[in-house]
Design a protein around this nucleic acid. Structure first.
Lengths: 224, 224
DNA sequence: GGATCTGTTCTTACACCGTAAGGCGACCAT
DNA sequence: ATGGTCGCCTTACGGTGTAAGAACAGATCC
């Protein structure tokens, strides 16, 4: 019996890690105090010594993800502001896609996660140096932030893989009711050449990011 | 006893209405089957005859809000595509603000709400008529959708009213760690002249919407 | 009239959730 | 030894979604 090795002690960090892992694998529904406890081979109530309550735990999960985004910035090459900011946004999105639960959870937070400050400070520094004034920098932050957070939420992907054989009758009814939409879907599906869905979300994200960056550059040039 | 008037019968629509009302007033946490039942003077289990389960109920709530956005379009004046689309987006955002729970709940949906089709069909029709090709129309949809959904989620509002007397010491530490951010906050707070927060979210939304519309117009002009 | 059927509502019950309250053993300074 | 602190566990409670079936209403047919 004395062979039993002491269990790794519980830590806030280990708890948040387990929670994030659970959410990544099985969604937010699976993140319960008891499930996290199981993951770490402890009882649910033991978590409360390291985390105030579930709300704090979720805030911690958010902070973990935002910190991951902030750190991803340290690796990227610093060129002109446009490509620097572009790369950061692409990284941020990539990370969001590895944590599909994150955007909607972030949207529910009532306080900014602490690690967001470092992220934003860096971003603001980059654009100020490029000649943005403070007002434009501020707006840039909001524009880009909402883009990264909003784009994971696809409200519109009418043909998500599954329906191999679309119901003929329903299709005809749809075509009558939503002529433009069906026409567009037709063209885009044809252009996609047998892709699973008509939406290539990555391309659409990059397109929109381009729109926003172009617009910011135009405003910056107008300042000078 | 015979004076008792028959209770209004339960309906899917009445249930969804009550649920939305509850969420608007007290947040999603308050939306429980029992609470909805109370609101309608029924038992919780009675709801299940009109709604498959809670997931379906929430999908119905989303559909109600999206339908509200779709209908808000019927009233607006149809001018050039830019102002038409702009007005629709502003209306959509206004409606989102009356249902603060909606964006994060919409983000969790795995299927497009049915009423989104009418909304998008109308939007696609507007821009096609203005000379967009199908690919550009498709991207426009995604760009604008993510804007409306993403912008309610403010990740960044560092001074939200409450802290009247910011801790001097903490302030100094922050200034050392996040110089650009604090400088910007200073300038913007001064410019806002005693506003509650440095962020005027409506102005920031309209700014970003302008960026996106400008960009789309440039792409459209390049097609011709 | 009564009997039957059909669709709605209510009763009861259960498993699971977050977490309040307090107990128990291992360490550590006195 | 002794008392204190720290980390973890046990028990228990009220609230949640919902499965199963009973109770009730009104329409339909004899």
């Amino acid at each position: 019996m004395s062979v039993e090795q002491a269990k790794e002690p519980l830590t806030r960090a280990r708890i948040l890690d387990a929670a994030v892992r659970l959410a990544d694998a099985s969604g937010m529904r699976a993140v319960t105090m008891r499930a996290i406890g199981d993951e770490l081979d402890r009882e649910a109530m033991s978590l409360y010594h390291h985390v105030a309550d579930k709300k704090a735990l979720i805030a911690g999960m958010v902070d973990t993800v935002v910190a991951e985004v902030a750190e991803s910035g340290h690796a990227i090459h610093r060129g002109d502001w446009r490509s620097t900011v572009r790369d950061r946004c692409l990284e941020a999105r990539r990370i969001m896609l590895t944590h599909p639960w994150a955007p909607s959870v972030i949207a529910q937070q009532e306080e900014s996660p602490a690690s967001a400050f470092a992220l934003y400070d860096d971003l603001v520094g980059t654009v100020l140096e490029a000649g943005f004034d403070h007002a434009l920098a501020h707006r840039a932050i909001h524009a880009l932030g909402s883009l990264v957070l909003g784009f994971s939420n696809e409200l519109f992907d009418p043909a998500p893989g599954g329906d191999v054989e679309p119901d003929e009758e329903a299709m005809r009814a749809m075509a009558a009711t939503f002529p433009h939409l069906l026409e567009m879907a037709d063209m885009e599906l044809h252009a996609a050449e047998g892709a699973l869905s008509m939406c290539d979300t990555q391309a659409e994200f990059e397109f929109t990011l381009g729109l926003v960056l172009d617009g910011l550059e135009a405003r910056r040039a107008a300042l000078a």
